[in-house]
């Protein structure tokens, strides 16, 4: 009997589902953050901003907040929770004594973090649609887009969590995540930046994520969206690969 590496990752997902069956409230608290931004900036500040790219300011930033919430949910789970299970709770030490291997752990935890990001995105899009902020039937694809976004950030987050040594190191995660949130053409178009800087911003994975989701909610879909999605998928896959190697090195000594 041989088992293909990574084919049992869903059991980690199942384990997390068992844990959160009792703690749904903790997950739901994350639903509100993007809504607070939407009301405060989208409608509040938006009142003074007027229209951007032909739509209301709230409609303009809603997809960006959706992508950001998929990112935040995925990163939060992939870093904080995975770090805890890896270094303190010894969950993976127990798991690796069973037929599961590091690839299963990396894939299983990625899918869970992705799922968490998806939940936040789903909650947000329902609200956004009911407020009339989705302008196209393409908007139905915003949710699958959030799955791609979640995958990218979950994979990268899990790789990052294997490098984290102490709780203080999470400040470094923040140091990347916060500017990415603020400057990835989230609250204003890329054209605001000088040309040179525009190219830097284009490499931000969240920028790609926002472009992808925004195309769907505003109905401006094009072939270049495949590049946006591809970029996120590749980053996520590289993250999983790295995480698998790192976890094997840390746990199978």
């Amino acid at each position: 009997m041989t088992t293909l590496a990574g084919t049992r990752g869903h059991l980690l997902f199942e384990r997390n589902l068992m844990v959160y069956r009792r703690a749904w409230l903790i997950i739901f608290s994350g639903l509100f953050e993007p809504l607070f931004y939407l009301f405060s900036l989208g409608f509040g500040l938006g009142h003074f901003v007027g229209r951007v790219h032909g739509v209301t300011y709230a409609s303009y930033i809603a997809p960006a907040l959706l992508a950001s919430s998929a990112m935040n949910g995925a990163i939060y789970d992939a870093t904080t929770n995975v770090f805890w299970k890896l270094r303190y709770a010894k969950v993976y030490d127990a798991v690796l004594a069973t037929p599961l291997g590091p690839a299963d752990v990396a894939l299983g935890e990625t899918s869970w973090a992705q799922f968490r990001g998806l939940l936040y995105a789903a909650g947000f899009i329902v609200t956004a649609a009911s407020l009339g902020l989705v302008h196209s039937w393409w908007g139905a694809l915003a949710l699958p887009a959030a799955v791609v976004v979640g995958f990218g950030f979950a994979g990268m987050g899990i790789a990052a969590s294997t490098f984290i040594r102490t709780w203080q190191d999470f400040d470094l995660v923040q140091l990347v995540q916060l500017p990415m949130f603020l400057f990835s053409a989230t609250f204003y178009p890329l054209s605001v930046y000088p040309t040179a800087l525009q190219w830097v911003v284009r490499f931000s994975p969240l920028y790609e994520a926002i472009v992808l989701v925004r195309s769907f909610t505003l109905g401006t879909v094009g072939w270049t969206n495949l590049v946006d999605a591809g970029y996120l998928v590749v980053l996520g896959a590289l993250g999983i690969r790295l995480a698998r190697r790192r976890m094997a090195g840390l746990l199978l000594t």
Partner: peptide
């Protein structure tokens, strides 16, 4: 080469408890 197959037939009680405290 057969780690997963072997582990599937073993029972392990490690030195330090690795019980899942969230369950």
């Amino acid at each position: 080469t057969d780690g997963p197959a072997i582990r599937g037939r073993l029972g392990v009680v490690p030195q330090m408890d690795t019980l899942d405290n969230e369950l």
